[in-house]
């Protein structure tokens, strides 16, 4: 039986861990303060004869290595290359949440965007045109409510399609201002020459321009030995510090 690895990324307070529990049928109390997802949590589930390993990354606002959490989430997506990354967005604050989604889309095209808390948004009179969003982003987009368990099947079927290669998403690239674009173009050829397609060249160029020191350090380790960069092991979900 085929096993796919799925990562969950998203801002804090988007119900990522609730979705994790829903999918893996775990029943743990979720919440940032009491049971913050440290490093990452793993669980498994089955859907239509396919086995999935689900990895819950820490909730972050960005993946630009401003904190240990952000580094852990970024390293997982870029170096571990999960079969699909589900980006969980809070339907009630899409602008800020899309910031992270776009950062993920620059790292990989194996993405399904999942707009959570859609019931909450409806209650607040926020209407989201999912099809249009999908068009704009260029990746499958699904609206769900993790706590009321709506939209989960649709989400899983999109995840399966992306994982199996039935759908190959092509994210719409962000166009930066001319100055940055020009610099990217200067860097990309030498990056491609060095890394081939092991890492997305455009993303690496942006990180180089940003002077992302921590990423560079990790990248060097990764280039020398694909396994040595890993900092810490994953925790099993629900494993708590106390008792």
């Amino acid at each position: 039986m085929k096993t796919y690895t799925i990562a969950l990324a998203g801002n804090p307070n988007t119900g990522k861990s609730t979705l994790f529990n829903t999918l893996t049928n775990m029943r743990q109390h979720t919440g940032n303060w009491a049971g913050k997802t440290v490093l990452r949590a793993e669980g498994t589930f089955q859907h239509l004869d396919t086995q999935f390993t689900l990895v819950d990354l820490p909730g972050t606002y960005s993946l630009y290595s401003n904190s240990a959490d952000e580094e852990a989430a970024r390293d997982y997506i870029i170096f571990e290359k999960p079969d699909v990354t589900i980006v969980v967005l809070d339907a009630t604050s899409l602008e800020r949440n899309l910031n992270l989604a776009i950062q993920v889309l620059e790292m990989t095209n194996q993405v399904v965007v999942c707009i959570n808390l859609i019931d909450e948004a409806k209650r607040l009179g926020i209407h989201i045109d999912i099809r249009k969003m999908e068009q704009k982003l260029g990746v499958p987009t699904v609206a769900i409510s993790a706590r009321n368990k709506t939209g989960i099947n649709e989400l899983l079927s999109q995840v399966l399609k992306v994982a199996s290669g039935e759908i190959v998403p092509s994210p719409t690239p962000i166009t930066y201002n001319d100055e940055i674009e020009q610099k990217i173009n200067e860097l990309v050829p030498s990056i491609q020459e060095m890394l081939g397609d092991r890492l997305p060249a455009r993303w690496v160029a942006l990180r180089l321009l940003d002077g992302d020191e921590s990423l560079l350090t990790t990248m060097k380790l990764w280039l020398t030995d694909q396994d040595s960069y890993k900092k810490e092991e994953a925790l099993q979900y629900g494993q708590t510090a106390c008792h």
Partner: peptide, 14 residues
């Protein structure tokens, strides 16, 4: 620039 893009998307979608 990322925020310009997300604002643009949200204006049309939300």
């Amino acid at each position: 620039d990322i925020y310009k893009t997300t604002h643009g998307i949200c204006r049309e979608v939300v």
